[in-house]
């Protein structure tokens, strides 16, 4: 397990907040209602095992936008909402009303867009911080449990960060979580980069 001191975590949280701020800027150009995004807390798990992730994220099926990254850093980034929050989020952003059997298809696409903007903001901050080039997969939306999202990713040497996120749209607070799983030496690369900024 990679140790991360509270100071390093604070600095990293600042960087992530810059990334989500940029994402919020883009979102605000697209929707009529102001959206604010903040990351109040980032949690680093002791180890990457599905049991540990389930303790924090639960076992419910969630609405997930996920992408994998490689090259300079390797791993998976995912944004996870409880299904009802995801639905509410889309309704608030688009002004759509729930009730149609087909709305789920559009919800998936909209969440995919919002999720990709957010993950782009955070991964962009991490790439800048580490001064590395990162390659990405195309973001995909899925309905899955946290175990299904990260089951194949956890293993020897992987590290997990959980980014607690708060979205405010039209005075409604919606909570989501981002899961960052770093493979191999990626977490160490990130920590070294943070230390260089101190």
């Amino acid at each position: 397990m990679v140790e991360i001191s509270p100071i390093l975590l604070d600095v990293f949280t600042e960087f992530v907040n810059i990334g989500v701020g940029r994402a919020a800027g883009i979102l605000n150009q697209m929707v009529s209602s102001p959206v604010t995004l903040t990351v109040p807390r980032i949690e680093v798990l002791d180890s990457c095992d599905t049991g540990g992730i389930e303790r924090v994220m639960g076992t419910e099926t969630l609405s997930v936008v996920r992408l994998t990254f490689n090259a300079g850093l390797n791993g998976t980034a995912a944004l996870l909402f409880p299904s009802n929050s995801a639905h509410k989020f889309v309704v608030l952003l688009t002004g759509e009303q729930p009730g149609s059997p087909d709305i789920d298809s559009l919800k998936a696409e909209t969440l995919n867009e919002v999720g990709s903007i957010l993950l782009n903001g955070i991964m962009g901050s991490i790439a800048n911080l580490c001064e590395v080039h990162i390659g990405y997969s195309v973001p995909e939306h899925m309905e899955a449990t946290p175990r299904e999202v990260c089951g194949g990713e956890c293993g020897k040497g992987a590290s997990v960060m959980i980014v607690h996120s708060m979205f405010t749209v039209k005075e409604h607070l919606i909570e989501g979580k981002m899961l960052l799983i770093f493979q191999g030496i990626s977490m160490q690369t990130l920590l070294d980069a943070i230390k260089r900024k101190l």
Binding site: T94, E109, T110, E113, I117, L119, G124, I134, Y136, P139
Partner: peptide, 23 residues
């Protein structure tokens, strides 16, 4: 900017951008 910045971000090495019909 909602299109241009996101497309430019891909040229700069960022991940894919999705543009949904609802938005």
């Amino acid at each position: 900017p909602k299109y241009l910045r996101r497309i430019e971000s891909i040229f700069e090495g960022g991940p894919a951008a999705v543009f949904s019909s609802l938005l």
